[in-house]
Design a binder for these strands. Structure first.
Length: 552
RNA sequence: UGCCCGAUAGUAUAAAGGUAGUACGACGGUUUUUGGUACCGUUUGUCUAGGUUCGAAUCCUGGUCGGGCAACCA
């Protein structure tokens, strides 16, 4: 029972409940997505909260699909949600659907009609809206509000039987048309939708609204702590009202502030637009803040869980810096990713005093962060190498610890070299760099006594393989695209994807394992994209390395 | 204009009437065969005006600012 971190406000509530013996010490939470889109990092916060809370206090969590609106939902989304929750590392106690309760919910509605707490309203949507009044003016009752129990019962049954077209009638709760809380002004409980449901098929043509499904589902499952986001605060009195009138299990609702991340958007509606308008490849485009996008980008479940832990849980609106997410994945990958070498923007380097045609196999460890290096691989070395174009400067400034005529660097896991000269092509671009190597400076057996400041990565020209490398930048140019004038899509970053069709990679990288993270030394963390095939590998850059070098 | 929620360094998040702390960021340094990692250090904060109290980030009142609520969405 070591208490490293102080409790968040929801944990405090749970601990109080546990101490007072509420629910016999039982904790049951639920994660209740609507299957109308893919899960994103904001959902990850909710998942970690709900599952984490239950796990911490010896309870369980249900996965419940809030599938009360058949026109927006699909099994494709159900499947992706299950996959994403599992991938994040969580197991649900039961896989449930609000649609499992449609019969019970119908009976609940009938019982409210009998208690004169619900009525069938024939008004149009516009009329109902008008009759609700405004925040400063009370609503006004219409003639349908005083219908008899018998008539309501009959009409509600007829609604269910399909006797009316969409929109002809709704069932409303009779609460308080003058309430200062708009949610209480006789909210809708059921609407008519002659639509095919992905689970119940054509059995129903009336569907319960969120407010008459969510709390009831919580009660049916005997959820002890129903955790949702801030915008549902005004719904809480209604949540409690239905439960009280129905006299069912007293689940309680608690609200926390949803996650906002800068330089992206987080609403399913907007993410769907990006997919439909082809601004991104799909829901799992590596630039998307979706769980599947982050997975494809190379994020690990542990890094996302760590992120959710670090951002905390409170009731204050927040905007989290993506740099924190990046910190979390770097921290994870630094410990686990195997080091490899790849040259993204190549320039040729020739070692003038190394025999042409000779190949030497050097050794380089997989992971310097682990004792023993987790083994290693052979690195073929020759007199012609690819190095990074920006590791050479014609006129290097003082603090430039790389190549320039007269400067020395170490080639990672190989030799120290000294730059002697360079040649240019007709356009005046540097074409080739000539260096001499120091034979006594071989990595691991260095007797040269020479100390160099810089070490650069390289790939042997005759042994190099090629791969497509995709570099990503933030999806939007502004911190909060939803808050800018005009359409949020105007603020997309036109340079969010940079494709390098044929980068040079070291030979061993052709054995790269899908799903594993690799650090391309000095270039960042990369992972194989799902579109990779043998002979045509594609790597996604998950994140750059932190760059401490300040250019001036 | 009504009701509801909130306000602590740049960003988040602690401190339950008693020393404002932590993480990320930024900045500086040490180490380093990755300008990475690791380690060390520095920096910046209680929205405002009153009140209660020996003592207020915390309790009370007014104000300011931000967010939410008037979908047959969730």
């Amino acid at each position: 029972m070591s208490e490293e971190r102080s409790l968040n406000f929801i944990e405090e509530i749970v601990e109080e409940d546990l101490q007072s013996g509420k629910h016999g010490g039982r904790v049951l939470t639920r994660f209740p997505p609507e299957p109308n889109g893919y899960l994103h990092i904001g959902h990850a916060k909710s998942i970690c909260l709900n599952f984490g809370l239950a796990h911490k206090y010896g309870g369980n969590t249900n996965l419940r699909f809030d599938d009360t609106n058949p026109t927006k939902e699909d099994v494709e989304y159900v499947d992706s949600i299950k996959e994403d929750v599992k991938w994040l590392g969580f197991d649900w106690a039961a896989e449930l659907y609000a649609s499992d309760y449609f019969d019970t919910l119908y009976d609940f509605a009938v019982s409210l009609i009998k208690k004169e707490l619900a009525y069938v309203d024939d008004s149009t949507a516009e009329e109902i809206a008008a009759q609700k009044g405004t925040p400063t003016e009370p609503g006004t009752p219409n003639q349908y509000r005083s219908r008899s129990v018998e008539e309501n019962l009959q009409m509600f049954a007829d609604m269910k039987a399909g006797k009316y077209p969409d929109g002809a009638k709704v069932l409303r709760a009779k609460v308080d048309l003058a309430s200062p809380n708009m949610q209480l002004r006789d909210p809708l409980m059921y609407r008519i939708k002659h639509a095919h449901h992905h689970r119940t098929g054509d059995k129903w043509c009336i569907y319960p609204m969120y407010d008459f499904a969510h709390g009831q589902s919580d009660a049916i499952e005997e959820i002890t702590h129903s955790i949702c986001t801030l915008e549902f605060i005004p719904h809480r009195p209604l949540y409690d009202w239905f439960i009280e009138q129905l006299d069912i299990f007293p689940s309680k609702q608690y609200e926390f502030a949803r996650l906002n991340l800068n330089y992206t958007v987080m609403s399913k509606r907007k993410l769907l637009q990006l997919v439909e308008d082809k601004h991104v490849e799909d829901w799992d485009d590596p630039r998307m803040p979706t769980i599947s996008g982050l997975r494809r980008r190379g994020y690990t479940p542990a890094s996302i869980r760590d992120f959710c832990e670090r951002i905390g849980v409170a009731k204050r609106e927040n905007m989290i810096d993506v740099s924190l997410l990046e910190f979390c994945i770097r921290e994870d990958l630094n410990k686990t990713a195997w080091r490899r070498m790849a040259v993204l923007d190549p320039i040729k380097l020739v070692i003038t005093n190394y025999p042409a045609g000779k190949t030497e196999n050097l050794f380089s460890e997989n992971n310097p962060e682990v004792e023993g290096g987790e083994g290693g691989r052979e690195l073929p070395f020759s007199n012609e190498l690819w190095i990074e174009r920006d590791d050479f400067m014609e006129e290097p400034p003082k603090k430039f610890f790389r190549l320039g005529v007269g400067l020395m660097v170490r080639l990672k896991s190989a030799y120290i070299i000294k730059c002697e000269s360079f040649t240019k092509d007709e356009q005046g671009n540097v074409k080739e760099i000539q260096c001499a190597y120091i034979p006594e400076s071989k990595s691991g057996h260095d007797t040269s006594g020479i100390n160099v400041k810089g070490t650069i990565h390289w790939v042997s020209v005759p042994h190099a393989q090629t791969a497509e490398v995709r570099l990503y930048d933030r999806l939007f140019r502004v911190e909060d695209p939803s808050n800018e004038d005009g359409d949020f899509k105007e603020y997309l970053n036109p340079e969010s994807l940079h494709v390098i069709p044929d980068a040079y990679i070291e030979a061993d990288l052709t054995n790269a394992i899908p799903g594993k993270g690799y650090q391309f030394i000095r270039k960042g963390y990369f992972t194989l994209d799902k579109h990779s095939i043998a002979g045509k590998l594609v790597f996604n850059r998950t994140v750059t390395l932190k760059d401490g070098w300040v250019k001036k």
